[in-house]
């Protein structure tokens, strides 16, 4: 059977219509071809940029975790529907450089949370309980207001999701993770490495290499990993939904599952990951919301 017989021979009566349609299709495709040739000749740069974009999509290093985080952001209400959809597609196409996704922060994830500010809904952690000790309350209030004052330069920026300037009560016994001074505060800062305004999700304590890093409080080691931003880091889970992370270490001395007591040496400080110099990057999260560790360390 000769498959190459023109289609318009198959049906009589409508042959004219079909002839027209095939002629139109042919003419259209010739036009498209001529246009493509013209563009190639006249605008070669544009053509090659389209090519790299398309091939880039195909070649995508798709960050699936990020894509899922985007979805959970959308579901939890941190992102609008349109933004979620757009960011999700961008992630799948490998064009997720501008996408910020907090999602459900697993302790094994990479992003050091030094992200660009984005207009996101404020999510305050209102977990303050009633206290009999008014001096404690007063101390807290002064700490918080002093800190907010120090962040006033950045008052035009909204807080990222899962962060708060408030000081929820930890209700656990704790101590400082290292004998060191604060070299970089929590909150917005001009980022030391690349100069942009970014949110610092923890506290940097200046310490020489190989300083002992101590467990903040009793707990269990839930994560030990190495990432480009945090470097070698360990996460400990304490009671009351509190977790702490100790990053930029040179050595981790515990393993996942180990039970630690407050003050146990869990690591040696270093400058691994995205650190300007030797320091300990210390984060505290209460119910997965980042709080300012300096509040608590200043009371020790």
């Amino acid at each position: 059977m000769n498959r190459k017989l023109p289609k318009y021979n198959k049906l009589k009566g409508t042959s004219d219509k079909r002839l027209n349609r095939s002629a139109v299709k042919l003419a259209l495709s010739i036009c498209i071809f001529l246009m493509a040739s013209l563009m190639k000749l006249l605008f070669p740069d544009f053509v090659s940029s389209v090519k790299t974009d398309v091939l880039g999509v195909l070649n995508a290093n798709v960050d699936y975790e990020k894509a899922v985080s985007v979805i959970s952001d959308g579901v939890s209400g941190n992102k609008g529907v349109k933004e979620t959809a757009g960011d999700f597609v961008a992630c799948l196409m490998g064009m997720d450089d501008d996408v910020v996704a907090v999602g459900n922060m697993d302790d094994g994830q990479d992003s050091e949370k030094d992200k660009d500010e984005t207009p996101q809904e404020e999510k305050k952690d209102d977990e303050e309980k009633k206290e009999d000790d008014t001096t404690y309350q007063e101390k807290k209030e002064s700490l918080v207001s002093a800190f907010k004052e120090s962040q006033s330069d950045y008052s035009s920026y909204e807080l990222p999701a899962d962060t708060t300037y408030e000081m929820p009560d930890l209700n656990i016994v704790y101590m400082a993770p290292a004998e060191a001074a604060v070299s970089s505060q929590f909150g917005y800062r001009d980022h030391p490495v690349d100069g942009e305004v970014k949110f610092h999700y923890g506290l940097d304590l200046a310490c020489e290499l190989e300083t002992d890093v101590l467990a903040f409080a009793d707990g269990e080691v839930i994560s030990v990993n190495d990432s480009t931003s945090y470097g070698l880091n360990v996460v400990i889970s304490h009671s009351n939904g509190i977790t702490t992370r100790y990053a930029h270490c040179s050595e981790i001395l515990v393993s996942v599952g180990d039970t630690v007591k407050m003050g146990d040496v869990i690591a040696k400080s270093g400058d691994t990951g995205n650190a300007t110099g030797p320091c300990l990057h210390f984060e505290i999260r209460v119910q997965d919301v980042y709080v300012n560790p300096e509040y608590y360390l200043s009371l020790v």
Binding site: K4, P6, S22, K25, L26, L28, S29, I30, I32, F33, M35, A36, S37, M39, K40, V47, V50, K51, V54
Partner: peptide, 18 residues
Amino acid sequence: LIFKPGFFLLLAVMVFFL
């Protein structure tokens, strides 16, 4: 001599991407 539209579309894609 038979020309089908697919041929020109193929050519267009080739011109654009190669």
